[in-house]
Nucleic acid binder design. Structure first.
Lengths: 214, 214
DNA sequence: GTCTATAAACTGATAGAC
DNA sequence: GTCTATCAGTTTATAGAC
């Protein structure tokens, strides 16, 4: 695993420097609008020298995603909710479970380089079907299915209002996706305030809970 | 106003044909990945001939947005909610008002060429700040402000639960933005089922109303 | 209004000297 | 592992014949 963000001193390592610069440029300018020469310029070498470290431009992108993917899965089965016990059905425990799924994503995003990688993913998803599918699966479908199951169980146990579990899980999830979309894609800010997003997500969880509780 | 979608017969007009082809290609392949030559090929002329109708590639894009913008504003102040009267405070009237904002967008999208133009907007918003701001203002900020005001009024009149009107308006809006994002950006489908989106939006409105009503 | 020909700039990638 | 030089391809856009 490449660790290209430890300290400036270690950034001397050219390969890691290339990746660090590539993350910065890809996330800001987009993959297509970043040339090998531009990356090399910033690193302080010539374009041809890049090919001593990577076989192609795409290989740089792949290495970036590999780094992200590893860290993503390292956080564990983030959306897995275990079998419900009796003690899980108390209000504070339910709110805790609702919070869990978002927390893991927020924790990933608290690593500053991760925000930039997520920006790349979001920007390149149209051109690259693999990226799109990764995003769709990991950020949309998987968490939704887990939440749908959870809602169904709570419904059967008579804890929340009857309704469509699929709709409930979408209502729960939509706000977070929307926030991510707004913060990462629409806004032109240099610095994304993850803590503020966390506060808003918590308000949403409260709102949602009050909507479905009996 | 250019009308490049009336009938095949009228598509003979080269300039309109160029725009129609550009919409198709830009929405599918993206602006950067569509070359002047490719557009010319499909139209049936040579690349250089495009410049008899447009001064630059960007001018084609601008003309497309002009068309969209005009139609968008033609639909009227879609998100304007007038002063509330006594009769507006009945449940069915409130639900009607909630439905209104979305309806206008859905009606725009029922024109098939509009879906493709919206796809272009969504795909190019990262590269083009003007597009990003247009989207942010017209689809996010304006409707949110109108809804916030509406929520505040309903709150003051004791019709809905007390809470943060800003949060309420976001909760209302997030689902629709999320749906748009999912349908237009993430999914790989040829044909977008607007009617199905409409059904889902209606379910959301119901869910939202049940969440805030007293 | 279309064509051919071409300019000028850029791209990713390679060969081979040092 | 970096450099220079260069290939081969692409792009937008222009000039000028018809």
């Amino acid at each position: 695993m490449v660790d290209f963000f430890k300290e400036d001193l270690e950034l001397r390592d050219t390969k890691n420097k290339i990746i660090a610069v590539a993350i910065e440029q890809f996330s800001d300018q987009g993959y297509d609008n970043t040339s090998i020469r531009k990356i090399a310029d910033i690193v302080g070498i010539k374009g041809s020298s890049i090919y001593n470290h990577f076989n192609s431009k795409e290989e740089i992108l792949e290495e970036i995603f590999k780094y992200y993917r590893n860290l993503f899965y390292q956080m564990g089965d983030v959306f897995e909710i275990k079998e419900l016990h009796h003690s899980d059905l108390k209000e504070d425990k339910i709110l805790y479970v609702l919070k869990c799924g978002f927390d893991s994503v927020i924790n990933i995003l608290k690593r500053p380089e991760m925000i930039n990688i997520l920006k790349i993913i979001i920007k390149e998803q149209f051109k690259n079907q693999k990226i799109r599918n990764f995003f769709l699966e990991e950020f949309i479908d998987k968490p939704r299915k887990v939440m749908e199951k959870f809602m169904k169980e709570l419904m059967e146990k008579g804890i929340i209002r009857n309704g469509n579990p699929y709709l409930y899980s979408q209502e729960f999830q939509a706000f977070a996706i929307y926030k991510m979309y707004e913060e990462f894609m629409l806004k032109d800010v240099e610095y994304i305030d993850i803590d503020d997003i966390e506060v808003q997500i918590n308000h949403h969880i409260e709102f949602f809970w009050n909507s479905i509780r009996k």
